[in-house]
Simulated assay, not measured.
Amino acid sequence: MSRIVVVHGVGRQLDTAETLLAEVEPALRGGVGLALRRDPTLGRLADGDMSCAAYGDLYRQPGTRGEPYYQAADVELGFEAELLEAWWREAARLDPRIPGPDAPGPNTIGPAARGGVGRLAGRPLSVDWVRRALDALTRTRFFGAVSDRLLISDLKQVRRYFTEPGLREAVRARAAELITPDTRVVVGHSLGSVVAYEVLCALGPERPPLTLVTLGSPLGLGGLVFDRLQPAPEQGGSGAWPAPVKQWTNVADSADVVALVRELAPRFGPEVRDLLVHNGSEMHSMRAYLTAVETGTAIAEGLAR
């Protein structure tokens, strides 16, 4: 059984566990290799140490080729519009050249939008507003390589995970079946960090200790993600700590628009080790995160435990 389980994020509908492993394994080995150059006493990788929890096929629509041809009008009011706005505001904060939601421009949903689209329940969502958001995001270094169609698809995948219990359960089952007593490290990227966290929270403390490594994680995003987690955060606002996890390292790029809250320690406790990296133009790329020496060190430490 694999000592390392990797859980991917959205946008991998055409991948299987085998195709993901072909991409992930060289990157992860590269990051661990860099870590071993710094500290040869860390844990090393062996053949067969790695597996990928693939769930993208659960999002594929039967009888279709690829993704539906989503357009601005397909973005739904509520979760999707709020997440889109959150990404948009962060992109504008990171790059002053990108106009934010409050900049002058077409806004047919009215002044109330200045306070956040989440306050517009029951009112139609302006297509012009969505187009402004999409235009702004496609000017960023990461989303600039993503079409509007795929960006909207990503919004819908995140929304569906949190609002469709059957899908959520099926996604988590893909990861849970790979985590065995032999597993020492679980790596979750983007939405995969949410999946990994929820799966580990469902495990009891009696199993062997684990290391959790989260990459480009949205776990700390209040309202849309953090407050929807299972188990729910405690009344004081602290997220539950997964019982089997003895070490948790969270790695985030300082310009990652998706990882809106880059430090998870304030949400989940000071035991979380938050690290910043610089992935260049691939700030949210799973490959770029895995090849970072910080990620490799966290994984190698977990293997050495």
Score class of each variant (00 low, 15 high):
45 L>Y: 12
45 L>I: 11
47 D>E: 14
48 G>E: 04
48 G>K: 06
49 D>P: 09
50 M>C: 13
51 S>F: 00
51 S>Y: 00
52 C>D: 08
52 C>R: 11
54 A>Y: 00
54 A>Q: 03
54 A>K: 03
54 A>T: 01
54 A>W: 01
54 A>M: 06
54 A>G: 05
55 Y>I: 10
55 Y>E: 00
56 G>D: 03
57 D>L: 06
57 D>T: 11
57 D>P: 01
57 D>Y: 13
58 L>M: 08
58 L>T: 04
60 R>S: 14
61 Q>V: 15
61 Q>A: 10
62 P>V: 10
64 T>Y: 05
65 R>W: 14
65 R>D: 11
66 G>V: 10
66 G>Q: 05
67 E>T: 13
67 E>K: 08
67 E>Y: 12
68 P>H: 10
69 Y>E: 15
70 Y>K: 00
70 Y>P: 04
71 Q>K: 05
71 Q>I: 09
72 A>D: 09
73 A>W: 05
73 A>Y: 00
75 V>A: 02
78 G>D: 00
78 G>W: 01
79 F>S: 03
79 F>Y: 15
81 A>K: 02
81 A>R: 02
81 A>Y: 02
82 E>I: 05
83 L>P: 01
83 L>C: 03
83 L>D: 01
85 E>P: 08
85 E>H: 07
87 W>Y: 15
89 R>A: 14
90 E>L: 10
91 A>T: 05
91 A>L: 05
92 A>R: 00
93 R>E: 09
95 D>L: 09
96 P>L: 09
97 R>Y: 04
97 R>A: 14
97 R>N: 14
99 P>N: 06
100 G>K: 03
102 D>L: 15
102 D>N: 12
102 D>P: 09
104 P>G: 06
104 P>K: 03
104 P>H: 01
107 N>S: 13
108 T>A: 13
109 I>L: 12
110 G>V: 08
110 G>Y: 00
110 G>P: 03
112 A>Q: 06
112 A>G: 11
113 A>I: 11
113 A>H: 04
114 R>S: 14
115 G>T: 14
116 G>T: 01
117 V>H: 02
118 G>V: 08
119 R>V: 14
119 R>S: 10
121 A>F: 01
121 A>V: 14
121 A>G: 10
121 A>C: 00
122 G>P: 01
122 G>K: 14
123 R>P: 00
125 L>S: 03
126 S>T: 07
127 V>Y: 02
128 D>H: 14
129 W>Y: 13
129 W>S: 08
130 V>D: 02
130 V>I: 10
131 R>I: 04
131 R>M: 09
132 R>M: 07
132 R>P: 10
133 A>H: 06
133 A>Q: 04
133 A>W: 03
134 L>P: 03
134 L>I: 13
136 A>C: 12
137 L>I: 11
137 L>P: 04
138 T>P: 09
